[in-house]
Structures are given as structure tokens and as C-alpha cells.
Simulated scan of single mutants.
Amino acid sequence: MLNQKSISERVFDVSNTALMIIIALGTLYPLLYVLFASFSSPMEVMQNRGLFLYPKDFTLEAYRLVFHNPNIKTAYINTMFYVVVGTVFNIFMTSLGAYALSRRNLMWKNAVMFMIVFTMFFEGGLIPVYILIDNLGMINTRWALIIPTAVSAFNLIIMRTSFQTVPVSLEESARIDGANDWTILFRIILPLSLPVVAVMVLFYGVFHWNSWFSALIYLQSRDLYPMQLILREILITNDTENMLTGVSSGDKMPIGETVKYATIIISTIPILFLYPFLQRYFVKGVMIGAIKE
């Protein structure tokens, strides 16, 4: 048989498959551990010294305490605002920059690209950036987490490369019909670049969802805190007191552990649901420009 594999090829396939399964399980189990622990009895979590293969003494008490915490609700709303508004603003600004830099007749295009790439290796530092944001009046405002991160140099380069693959003849035909740059960008270039746009949505969305350092530096009001900053307080500073109102002092330490796990799950699940919808675009979008025909 022409398609019959040799013994060495079969051994390689089996070994490769087994290795991938082990890596997948090693990657998945920490999440499953947190998930099972969040649904388990606090005392079972404290006494457990081995693997968690299922919830022990199933309970929803940790989730009840988390959802009754007003800081979590406020932080969730803030995070959704930062993710949605921030991502839309990122895509808009990155598209404008990528479109301009992908034009063949743009003056000093190489010099502009050099300055953009330069920022990937060198930056002004935290203090100058803080002074700049303070002088712009954005300290303790939502815009301090959105405007300074409007464009990522890496994402701009990826989107620019994608725009360059669109045939020039389409642009020329549109200009003959009277289309301007705005029409060409939003009605021709972007619809033909949906894979890379989906990847940019994923990259920027995950960035905003996981961002906490900028909020720690620029925000002073807890009413503006994102979810990840609240999660940091719970995990690092062990601040679960405001969630354990009404819990006896002897039970606070055990149930505080399951509250941490429940908070991790709540802050992780939404972004995990985003991946399946964008997965089919991911590989194609990331590989844009890697292979030239």
C-alpha cells in the first residue's frame, strides 16, 4: 500500500500524540484544580494534600459570598467597559495607522516605521509616562487605562502586513468610482482582513481583561478598579474580609481559600468563552505575512 506508514513513522505518531496529551493535561489540570476547589467544602480544601479530581463535599458557598461582594460587581462592570471601549478604540486607531503605513506613496514611510519599531525596544519609563498622563488630566479616570495603550506597535505591524496583501487593483477601482480613503478602509480593506481583525480583537481584549498594573498606578478610586486589581488584592494581600461578613472568625480562614478560587474562576471564564468564536481566524491572522507567494 502506497499510504501505509512505516514502523518508525507509527512510533513517531504515537509518541507525538502521547506527548501532546501529557502537555495538554499539564496545562489544563491547574484550571481544573481551581475549579474543583472552588466548588468544594472549605475544610476539604484545607485538609487536601493531593490531587483534586472532583469537587469534594460540593457547595456553592464561595460563589455566594463572591457575588454578594459589591466590589466584585463594580469591578466586573468596569472591566467590561475597559474591554469593550478599549478594544474598539484600539482597533480603530490601529486600523488608521496600519492603513496609512501600508500605502505605497506615503512619504517617509520607512522612517515612521523605524520610529514605531524603536518603541518596541526602548521606552521612556514609568515616571515620565505618569507625569505625562498627570499633565493630561487623566489620573484617576477611565481614560488613563485606554488612551495611553491606544496602539500596540506589534499589532500595528501585523495589521499593516495584512493590509499590504490586499490587491492594489481593488483600491484603484474604488478610486475610479470616487471612493475616498475612509471608504476604501472601512468598505474594502477591513472586510477583506477579517482574520487579522479578529486576532487584534483577541489580543487587545485579553490585554485589557488581564491589565491591572496601569490601574494600580493611575487609579485612586475603588469605584474605577477593574476586576484584575480586585483579584490581586484578594490573592496577594489576602483581602477577603469584606466578603466574609457574617462568617464566624473560626471559619474565615478555610472559606477564604475557596473564595479565592471562586474569584479566579469568575475572572477567567468570560475570556475563555471568547476563544472558541475567534479560533478559526487565529492561525490565519497570526501567520499573515509569514509566507509570501
Rank of each mutant, 00 (worst) to 15 (best):
D223P: 01
V286T: 05
T149K: 08
M43Q: 12
L28Q: 04
R104V: 13
R175A: 05
I22D: 11
L202F: 11
L219M: 05
W209A: 01
P226H: 01
G256Q: 05
G86F: 01
Q47C: 07
L274D: 03
Q220H: 13
L216C: 06
F52R: 03
I271H: 04
I22C: 15
N180I: 02
I23P: 03
F67D: 08
K109M: 02
N155F: 02
P270F: 07
F118S: 05
L278G: 02
L31D: 00
F207C: 01
I184S: 01
I7F: 10
F92K: 04
N155A: 08
F282E: 04
M113G: 00
I22K: 07
T245R: 13
I77H: 08
L126K: 09
A290M: 13
I291H: 03
A198H: 12
I184M: 06
Q4E: 13
Y281T: 11
L51W: 15
Y76G: 12
N155E: 07
G285S: 05
V66W: 04
G26S: 04
L244K: 08
Q4K: 15
E293T: 13
G256M: 11
N48C: 07
G289S: 04
L192K: 14
L272S: 04
I188M: 15
T141C: 08
Y82A: 01
R232A: 09
L136G: 09
N135Y: 10
L96W: 00
K284M: 08
S267T: 11
F39H: 03
S152C: 00
Y99V: 03
I265Y: 02
N140Q: 09
M93L: 14
I139L: 14
M107L: 14
A24C: 13
G256V: 07
N210T: 06
D239T: 13
L28T: 08
D57F: 08
Q279G: 05
L32C: 08
L219N: 00
E171T: 13
T94S: 00
T268I: 09
S267C: 14
F114S: 12
A215E: 00
L156F: 00
L272G: 04
N135K: 15
S249K: 12
T119Y: 00
I72G: 01
L192F: 07
F163L: 05
V112L: 12
V117Y: 10
A18L: 15
S41D: 14
V88I: 15
I131F: 10
A111L: 10
I23F: 12
G289K: 02
W108R: 15
Y204E: 09
L170E: 11
P276N: 07
Y130R: 06
M138G: 10
G178L: 09
Y99N: 03
G285V: 01
I291S: 07
Y275H: 08
S173I: 10
P128Y: 09
E172P: 04
F121D: 02
L244W: 05
I236T: 07
P226Q: 04
L25W: 08
D181H: 15
D134M: 12
F36Q: 04
N71L: 14
L19I: 11
S8K: 12
K284L: 06
V129Q: 15
I131A: 11
